[in-house]
Design a binder for these strands. Structure first.
Lengths: 236, 236
DNA sequence: TGGCTATGTGTAATAATTACACTAAGTTTG
DNA sequence: CAAACTTAGTGTAATTATTACACATAGCCA
């Protein structure tokens, strides 16, 4: 493997969302630093310093892959965090000393986000990620560094995007019911909608197209399945 | 003046918009590097490296003030640009060599933006800004570095913000006509609106309140003046 | 077969959007 | 000083979007 020069001042962090049919989840790693115990208990967003010769977008891809095994994820930039003290809390410093050449260097971080269907990907944590786990957004604990702020910002970003872009078709199976889609909107916007009005609105767009198939094996009237038609969407 | 350590890898650039009652303008500086001639011809956004011990927001404020004299401008982060080659074009390097300790260091930049009423501020360029000028957005020439991309992104940001926030009251005089406001919306969104519909929509919000005053000395029927009521706005 | 559960559907009232054309007020010009 | 010029200011009808609301239905299960 070739050796890359690391930029000591610039990192990327990835906020990857998924949906378990009820709630939004976010991908976190558990720090593994070798010997000490305490630092291991802290969860964080997958992130790391970039290389001198890669773009920010590529850095985000690479770091995400290295830490979690996720590959070819479409990542979008959200915001940049640069408080001079953002990595100087004691337990963060303790941990950084175990993995970085210049643990005290000031680091600004560029946050990236994506939405994926977790069923489609395997997590294979490595590098300093002892583990990679999906945690319900509502259950996210205190994270390392300023990662709770970063998550917050990514959530805001998600909320504002859902009004203009048909998000969430990456979060759902290829074939989904309108109830699933509604649950997803409700989870992202943290709100409730009227079923009839929601369906009318979705179907009016006409790039959510009905398949001639129904759910199977559910203990109630089976719902019709729909799919997202990308071609139709891009025509508009 | 105290000496500050400079972070060689992180800069900020400011995209400051103003409005001349017809068109959007953006604030650019002309590079001044002392001796050579060629490099002086290039315009750029005001921007520079940050200090190790300041936040990004503060850095943006400081750099803007140092280069243009603008003070206490509310700056908002837009996007971060980090292509490894973004500052390596020949004429950019020539100029950087004249002002930086490490002209070849990789620099990522965080773009900030703001809207101001240029009548309310004086430009007093200094540091390496030989001059600071308002240029119509439509007339912006080829800029240094990737500053045309940055301007583009800031414009997109502006367009998307105008739908949710009552932008542009900072761009207008305290007392303005609805025609001025409409022109501003048209300039930002690069579109035309129907006068009656526009007025109805604006007045429906009810935080644009009529003053009992009219324009004076215009060669046509004078328009009524309005003001933006911040208190009323924040109630919603 | 009766109960359970989530699906799927319609309508009326209200609000928002669009398209469209003429009179009015003040200044300038001849 | 009258006519011409320029921009301000106004209303309506047609269309579309939003909101609020209740009941019959399909398939499973006990």
């Amino acid at each position: 493997m070739p050796q890359h020069a690391i930029n000591p001042n610039v990192s990327v962090d990835c906020v990857i969302f998924s949906f378990n049919n009820q709630e939004l989840e976010v991908l976190l790693i558990e720090r593994s630093a070798g010997n000490t115990d305490k630092v291991d208990e802290i969860k964080a967003l997958p992130g790391n310093l970039i290389y001198e010769d890669e773009t920010l977008d590529c850095g985000a891809q690479r770091v995400l892959t290295e830490l979690t095994g996720l590959e070819n994820i479409f990542l979008e930039q959200v915001y940049t965090f640069g408080d001079p003290d953002r990595i100087s809390k004691k337990h963060d410093q303790d941990w950084l000393r175990s993995i970085r050449a210049h643990p005290e260097a000031r680091v600004i971080t560029i946050a990236y986000t994506s939405l994926i269907n977790k069923e489609r990907f395997n997590l294979t944590p490595s590098s300093f990620a002892r583990n990679a786990v999906w945690i319900k957004v509502k259950d996210v604990p205190q994270l390392g560094f300023d990662h709770n702020d970063i998550l917050e910002k990514a959530l805001d970003h998600l909320k504002s995007k859902i009004y203009t872009e048909p998000l969430g078709y990456e979060l759902l199976p290829d074939r989904f019911t309108l109830a699933q889609l509604q649950k997803l909107y409700e989870a992202i916007l943290d709100d409730k909608f009227d079923k009839r009005n929601f369906r009318r609105k979705i179907l009016r767009t006409s790039f959510i197209v009905p398949l001639n198939e129904k759910q199977q094996g559910v203990a109630h009237k089976p719902a019709g399945l729909y799919r997202f038609d990308k071609a139709l969407f891009h025509q508009m």
